[in-house]
Nucleic acid binder design. Sequence first.
DNA 1: CGCCGAGTTGAACTGAATCAAGAAACGTGG
DNA 2: CCACGTTTCTTGATTCAGTTCAACTCGGCG
Lengths: 191, 191
Amino acid sequence: MNKEEVIKRICETYAPLSRACQQELLDNGMMLFLEKNHILVREGQHSDKTYYIINGCARAYYLKDGKDITDWLAFENEFISSIISFFTHQPSPHYIELLEDSVLVEFSKSKIDELADKYHDFERLIRMVVTKTMLSQQEKIASMQFYSAKEKYANILAIRPDITQRVPLTFIASYLGITLETLSRIRNPRN
Amino acid sequence: MNKEEVIKRICETYAPLSRACQQELLDNGMMLFLEKNHILVREGQHSDKTYYIINGCARAYYLKDGKDITDWLAFENEFISSIISFFTHQPSPHYIELLEDSVLVEFSKSKIDELADKYHDFERLIRMVVTKTMLSQQEKIASMQFYSAKEKYANILAIRPDITQRVPLTFIASYLGITLETLSRIRNPRN
DNA sequence: CGCCGAGTTGAACTGAATCAAGAAACGTGG
DNA sequence: CCACGTTTCTTGATTCAGTTCAACTCGGCG
């Protein structure tokens, strides 16, 4: 997939853009080819970038008292960024790390704001991206409030059946808010 | 506070609007004076309204297997709506209920979408509202992943010291994802 | 071949839930 | 303004899901 196709796909997913706006966006997205384990953002950095994943996957995580807690997982055709840093210009509390060799398109906040100012249709697209993210978070909150460890695991498997092939169990566990040991027991068919 | 002042305040909080847009928004917001315990939205309804709270407070909650789980609390100068229904046009999984006699301004989704189409600056305002909501949710997720019952209670008290005077402990407990009994023990100074 | 990181299994522990009973506060009507 | 019933909150005893700590297994890779 090349950059043109990425832009086209983003328009289809979120909201259409004029030719001119598409072209400017194209000029301002940088394609990155990076290896598994590459760290896109470190704790304490000011990160004003967002990354659209063409291929591969990534996780955002916190280090809290030495413990590694996965906060977000993103796959093909999703955006990932240090949302706190990106939207509030504060230093990032997250790390963002690639879990596979990945192809990304990087966009900077300043360019996004500039384009949102210039093009009404781009402003709408950003609104749609943010709205979608908000709805995913709403789902995550509901899942944390309602479901047992077992149910949360079943939920994530239903949404993304290949996740155990792509993401180490430690990260899945901490994404679900449980320990690796608990996840391992859940997965054991005898329980 | 009258409607003009509300619009002005919203512009200050989120993003400025042209005179024309402010006027149209004004014409389309309906002021409501409602009593404590009034239910704004019921489970299963299609709710395409959002409410800006001028005075009072409200909660969104689920009924899950007969258990009442508070999902969101909102106070003066905040919006509340059944976010799933509002943004996805699905039937609401939430109830929304007033916790005090309240003054609200009601806006309908169709008008908001219409204005967002017509005015670039209004589109931006909506983007800002959604972004802010998303950031609050991010905080809530982090608080659920990191903190013990005691810490979560301390957090919410720090943000809103008068909450125990305004919101029954049952709702605070379920908002924090703990039981009423646990909250009661936490509050007991001997523990 | 042997090491190392990822995952599994076991046993003991714990924070919070559940169940149950009672106390305090609240509001409504007489 | 008080009495009574209802709702809200507290306290206690018990249980349980999930954590913690520790030892072990397995598979891949230098």
